[in-house]
Design a protein around this nucleic acid. Structure first.
Lengths: 166, 166
DNA sequence: AAAATATGTCAACATGACTGACATAAATTT
DNA sequence: AAATTTATGTCAGTCATGTTGACATATTTT
């Protein structure tokens, strides 16, 4: 039972529904913290990727988030005004606004990441060794094949050095 | 490397980010289909859970989706008006409106589930055997521990018989 | 008969997406 | 040097989906 031939047989109900419920709870911990700061998920995403990719360009952030600059503009402005993020001129191209977290921004980003890490850690602790790698591979394989390599590169790059492309 | 002790060491950046990217692509296939029908993700969720749990009560649906009845009301009304869902009086309690998909609703629900199943199937095909179970266990473990048993029960129950509680 | 329950509805509001148009400064091309 | 392209920002309006609070109706339970 449980064949995986594409477009045949029964839908993969368990994974479809587990993805829904797991993702909902996964984002709920940060949501609660953000609520007290009058921020939303959109702020979290921006803060997260700026924290992970210091010096990221606005255009690259838009690519990652796949939202419009108007949508980004709103939340980014609030994060700048409230000193969670700063921007500096691009050294080679002075039109660019390179984004960095402030100490305050880093503290929040790390606090939120810690919550999600704790949840993931508890989940992995319940499972055997190799569960981390299995989860990694499953999730990576779910990503659009055209985008997958870029995503993996982004993750690896941010891990290596806190410095973005260009 | 890669310890999982809660609240120590480095955040689990890879899984945090992969969950973001994987979930985004996972919902994107249905999104495209829904767009043509002038429906959104909210409609998808309602249709999905009604399809999976024929005869579900409005109150139970609200519990699953964790939204207000006003939010549900809007999308449910559209699905009823456009004949994707029907409602019948509860046999024992005539205040209840038990929800069912119509053939048209079932066709759409299955079409959307097929898209997500195909994506999952492609992902699992790239991995070894046991990947399905590993993914299942990881995702289930991510769910709030208080809610986990109920979720697993819901999934198993819907698999067994297309008939909801009560 | 009174109270509780299941559901629906009206009105107002917030968030975070969107489109389209336009503005500015800086880099690049001609 | 002038024209064009690029990176970014902003104004204005719209949409989808969530929220709160108040109230209405039918039905069941006490």
């Amino acid at each position: 039972m449980a064949k995986t031939a594409p477009s045949e047989a029964e839908p993969t109900w368990d994974l479809i529904e587990l993805l829904f419920f797991a993702y909902r709870d996964f984002v709920s911990d940060p949501d609660h913290v953000l609520e007290a700061l009058e921020f939303g998920r959109a702020h979290h995403r921006v803060l997260h990727f700026v924290n992970r990719n210091p010096g990221i360009k606005v255009a690259d952030l838009l690519d990652i988030l796949r939202i419009t600059k108007q949508s980004l503009g709103r939340v980014l402005k609030q994060l700048l005004d409230q000193d969670y993020i700063t921007q500096r001129e691009g050294p080679r191209d002075r039109r660019q606004r390179l984004l960095y977290v402030t100490p305050k921004g880093q503290a929040l980003a790390m606090r939120l990441a810690r919550l999600q890490t704790d949840r993931i850690g508890r989940a992995l602790a319940d499972l055997g060794p190799g569960a981390h790698e299995a989860a990694h591979r499953f999730l990576a394989a779910l990503i659009d094949s055209e985008a997958r390599q870029n995503v993996l590169k982004l993750i690896a790059q941010a891990d290596r050095a806190p410095r973005v492309n260009d």
